[in-house]
Structure formats: C-alpha cells, structure tokens
Design a protein around this nucleic acid. Sequence first.
RNA 1: GGUCGCUUAGCUCAGCCGGUUAGAGCGUGCGGUUUACAUCCGCAAGGUCGCAGGUUCGAUCCCUGCAGCGACCACCA
Length: 739
Amino acid sequence: MEKRYNHTTHEAPLYLLWEKSGAFSPAKDSTKPPFCIIMPPPNANGELHLGHATFVAVSDALIRYHRMKGEATLWLPGVDHAGILTQVTFEKTLLKNTGKTRYELGRAAFYRACFDFCMQNKSTMEGQLRALGASCDWSREKFTLDPQVSRIVLETFIRMYNEGLVYRGYRIVNWCPRCRSTLSELELDWEERTDPLYYIKYGPFTLATVRPETKFGDTALAVHPDDRRYKKFIDKQFTFETLLGPRTLQVVADRAVDPKFGTGVVKVTPGHDAVDWEIGQRHHLEVRTVIDFDGRLNELTGPYQGMKAQDARRRVVADMEARGMVEKVDSSYTHSVARCERCGTTIEPLVSRQWFVKVGSLTKAAVSAVRDGKTTIIPKKFAKMFFSWMRNVRDWPISRQIWWGHQLPVWYCRESQKTAAAKAEFGLLLEGDPRARIDALEDPIVSIGKPDICPRCGGKDIVQDPDTFDTWFSSGQWPITTLKTSKKGDFELFYPTSVMNTAYEILFLWVARMIMFGLYLSGEVPFTVALINGVLRDEKGQKMSKSKGNGVDPLETIQKYGADATRMGLLAGRDPGNDLSISKAQMDDRIRGYRNFSNKIWNAVRFILLTLKSENGAIRYKAAGQDTPYFDHLAQLISQTTQQFETYQLGRAAEGLYNEFWHWFCDDCIERQKKGSLSFGALLEGLVIFLKLLHPFVPFVSEACYQEVARALPDTQRKRLLKSKLLLSSAWPKRIQRS
RNA sequence: GGUCGCUUAGCUCAGCCGGUUAGAGCGUGCGGUUUACAUCCGCAAGGUCGCAGGUUCGAUCCCUGCAGCGACCACCA
C-alpha cells in the first residue's frame, strides 16, 4: 500500500468495478423490502455545481445504507428538459454561435438542436454523478422527453380534461414579452424598484399611477366603498378629456382599493393589471387590451401604437404634462416589479387564453396526505411552509408558448372556426407562423394523435396547438412516469417510493405538485418521506448558481481532494434543511480536512495490515473478557449510526463516525493495541465494522481499504471476516462477531 | 402585510426529550514524533450561548416580549 491515499488512482476504477458487479441494479426479489429514491432530475441546460452535489451525498448515503441492509434498493437517475430555462439558455448559445434567433431556425430544427444540446449536457452530468460516486441504476435512466414518459404526461392531461380538472380560459397572465410566453407566479422574480408615481387628472378626480401608458385600457375608476370623500360618486359616470379625446368612465366601489394610498381613487385597467382584472370580474367591466404580446401599444392607442410600453410611458407623460393633466410626480415611490425568472425581462400582465389546472381538490388531497403522515416532510419546518402555501394556491396555468417541451395534445379544425379573428389565427397556424397566438380559436379537440377528421364537423384541415406544457406539469408526474416506463414490475414494487431528497427551493414548484399528481393518478402518495436539503450559499449569502458565476464544479474538488472528501464536506455536521454559507476558500479548507480523513482511514488500514504481515497472518485474541469494553463501544456505535440513518440525521452520523474513527479508534484503540492491552483480532474486526459504517459517506476510500484487507487476509480468515467481495454489497453490521 | 426560521469560539456550524468543567472542523499560538499517517500527534488560548423578563431545585435548551438577520408566501394603483 502507498504511504498516502491517492484518490485519483482509486476512484474511477472502483466505480467501474461497482457498476460491473451489477449491484446498482436491484434484483427484484419480492422477499426483500424495497427501497427507492427517484433522483430529482437535474436540468438539462448545463452542468452540476457543488450545490447539486449535496443531494448526491445525502441520497447516495441512504441508498448505500439500505443496499447494505439487504433491501431491493433502486436509485433511479434522470434528467429534466427544463422547458423555459433550457430554451432561454439555448437561445443565447444559438445567437452567439450562429447569430440566429429561434424564429429564423424554425420550430423543428430548433427542437432538434436543443435536443442535441441537452444530450451533451446530460452526458456531462452523468460524468459528474459517476465521479461523485452516485450508485444509481444507469440502466433505468430517464429523460423527461422520452417518448414513453411523454405519452403518460399527455394521457394525464387528457384524463384531467375529461374530468374537468383542466380547462381553457381567458385570464390575466404573467406574460414575458421576450420569451413570448406566459408564466406561473412561481416563475417570477420580484425586484424592488423606485419609479415615478404620477398624479393624473381624471375629470373631477386626481389619481396616482406608475403606469400611465395603460390608461388607454381603463374601463372604470374605483374607490373604497366606505371612503366618505367619494361616496357620492359611486356608480356614477363621468366624461372627461383624455389624450385621445373625451371618454366616459364609471366609478365602482371595491374593497381592493386602499383609501390611504395616493388619492384613494384608482383607474381600473382589467387588461393589464392582476388586481384590476379581479375588480373587473367583480363589476363585469369591459376588458380593453392596449398592449400586445410583443409588449407594444396597439391600434387602440392612436399615436402611441407600436411603441414599447416603457417608451410610450415617457411620451404619454410628456404629452399629458403639455396639456396640464399631470398634477404632481412623486419620484421616491418604491414598489416591486415582476420579472421573468429565466431571462430577467419585466413581466407584462395581459389577458390571454390559456390552459389551467383546477387545483382545489388536488391541493386538498395533498394537504390531508401530509397531515395524516402518509408523507413526512423532514425537517418539520418545511411542512408548515407547505401547508400555508397549499391553503391559498390559485389555479395553475400549464400552457407555455415555447417550443422546448411536450406539445399539447390539442388540435383545432379550420371549418369549426366561425369568427374572422379565429380564421385569421388559424391561417397563421397553418402557415406555421412561429408567433401565432391561438386565443381566438374555438372548439379544441383533445387527442394524443392527430385526428383524421374533425369529430364535430368532419373537417380535415386540422392543426396542433403550438403550446407546450409547463415543465413542472411533466416533472410533477416524475415518480410515476419513471417507474412505469423503466422495467416491468418496477412501479408495482417501488411505488410509493421511499424518499424524495431535494432542495427546498422547489418545494412548491415540484414536491407539492408530485404529491398532487401522485394522489390523483395512483391514489397514493409518490414518496413516504420528503427529505429537504439546505442550500449552499457563498459568503455573501447568495445561492450558488451557474448564472451568478459563484458555482463550483464538483469535478474541481473531486480532482483536488477526492469524491469522498467532497461528499463529506457537503454532508458532515450539517443539519438537514439548514443552509450553509461559505466562501470558496473556506469550502476548500473544509474539504481538505476530509481529504485528510480519507488518508487517515487508509493509514489505519495500512498499519493494521503491516502488523498482520509481521505476525505472519496470525490473528490473535486476548483471553475472554479483555476486549469487552471495546466491543461494547463498537456495538453502541453501530446502533447509534443505524438509528441516525433511520431518522435521517446523516450529518450527525457522518460527524460522529469521523470523531469515533479518528479519536477513538486511531488515537486510542490502535495505540492500546500497540501497547498490548487490546487484542489484534479485536482491532481487525473493529476496522471492518468501521469500513462498513463509513462506506455510505466515503464510498471510495472505504472500498479501496476493504479490498486491501481482503488481499492481505489468509483465505480462511477472509471467509470469516469478509463475507462479501465488495464492501458495496456487504452486509450492514448488526452485532459484533465475538471470537 | 402574513408565515416560518436563525442569532452559540476569529470563521462555518453541531448541541435530540432542560441536569456536572458548552462541542467539532478550519484558523491562531506553543511543543513533539519522523518505521501507520506532517494529509501526523500532544497541549493551549478563545464563549456573560442576541437582549430583557418568566417557569424550575436547576435554562444554551421551555414560555413571553424586544432587537437584528434571513427565507418563503401575498401585495404594493
């Protein structure tokens, strides 16, 4: 054995050895209890960083522990196509490399190129997972756009449509003018901004607004019903001059108006503001759209037509000032503005016809499943977040106007269309105009394949809805789609899965949706434990991410200090669910410390094997009873570690083993054995137990050591002490074998 | 605005059901071994456990209030 443990020479060959042994793929033996983790599929838009590696350290430790316990253990890997995120990332790459936009490339070519891009990233990430030692079953790997997976996703949509849980409707949506797509609330970033607040004259009133350019879409004025200043105006109509001539608006009373804000009067623009939309719904106001899907003012705005909203705002203000319509400007007003989480563009709320999931019954079922303990969320604090979010979710918009994803199984027939607007839009669809919206189209046909003829009118000009699903609509079904398409019998054996191990950032986006879909589609929760990891942050407290440039490639630390050290650095001593804020240099120190630990293990083994050699392979024991306290201590450590695994206190288990191995076993027991007060046989047995206990946390060095021990032992002793060829598939220690 | 959480050594963090001198890693200082490991070993310095009350024989731990920080959700005309 070398004097130092050299991770670079051991890790890759060991991984191959494990993989070839077949132990990553469970033999489906119905007598063994199943244990299954579905890997949260990393996004196909890039690489993994050290933050992602946390889930590998945690999940793989659990997987290895359960495998050693002899359970039918499956860790199913996969990759997510990550709809908008990947599309935006790839659009940037495309523009940089070829100068082309997605529209210039066309839908089919764009899809193919994006697919290749994802496959490339996928193989990079697979390499990273292997390097980290992830003992997942590659033969069952899945991609969210695999045809079989996709089929189930589409079938779910159809089933939900038939049962009234999916509907199509006009709503105010969060529209990203750059992505040209709608977004759910969860896909927005809110930015604090200081913008001028304009006090504008509206006939007898003055009201405050930050968006004067939307005034062309006003269809009412609103005041609080109890506001004494304005009571006499309620339900009355007023005609006054605007930039486009005289207009008449009615005053409505609505509790959404805060009398203390501004002047207590609000212009209601249902077409371009979420709150105003709701006021409009309550008072049956006309919806007047004045900004189009490009974020430009439309034909209803006269001279402002064609201008971007921001530019139009400046012009409108200037023109109003010229006419004395601006009473004052408050330039210190701060508010939050929604931006597209993926590309940063300011969101334009506007009305569009989209597909929605009616979430009421689904959230109710999910809440009771968690409340009844069918799924346990660890740590508990996230269960509280889960409940409060589930209580007030709104219906979920699932259609996206992007190309990268599952295209909706929805079709339209030309002859069914009655209105001129619908006929015009249909024409765009037929021509494959990439910017076509389909708001005016009626009578959708929901079907997986293209219908030959329209079931309503027999028409034959049939075109598919260009929209795709929100990524989370498909990943929400991931535990089901993966297991139903991997190997025969997998779903029956492994569902509901055991643990879902992921970060809290996607608790609502993903974990909650999986529970909802799982219950809806199978009647059972998709996992019995949701183990939520904390987030890795830099020293400024910012989340580690590729876009922020503060991410660390795990391959760097693996190269430098080894996968074992990297994993320990991410796991040991951490409390589940708590963030870790740490600078690059500190993280390096931390991992280096655990690299030293790898070496410590190696050298303990080296010393013990040297002793064995000097004894000519003889393994001696003291007289009965002398080693009893030592074995008691080991027994206690086994039960403590086992207990910590069962209660998901992996950080403490790892830290405990670190201390016990280093400061008890090495500093104390080895020294005592040198002095002769502990028998060599006991030391050797203890070593094997430690290697087993440590294996889930430091798989490579423990396996390397195990192999060294196997090589050094005489045949009979090897059979007695090591039952298995690989530590990976050896049995988790239960009790001490006393001699 | 609502909810949840955090505040312990220079730094990053553990500390489960309240019970002697409050722990780890890294960092710092001093010393040592050089045939298991300098990726080592030993020793040391360093904490009024955010603040103020309360419960208790006893509080870092439980309760209340306050302050600071953070996260999430909602919302800002």
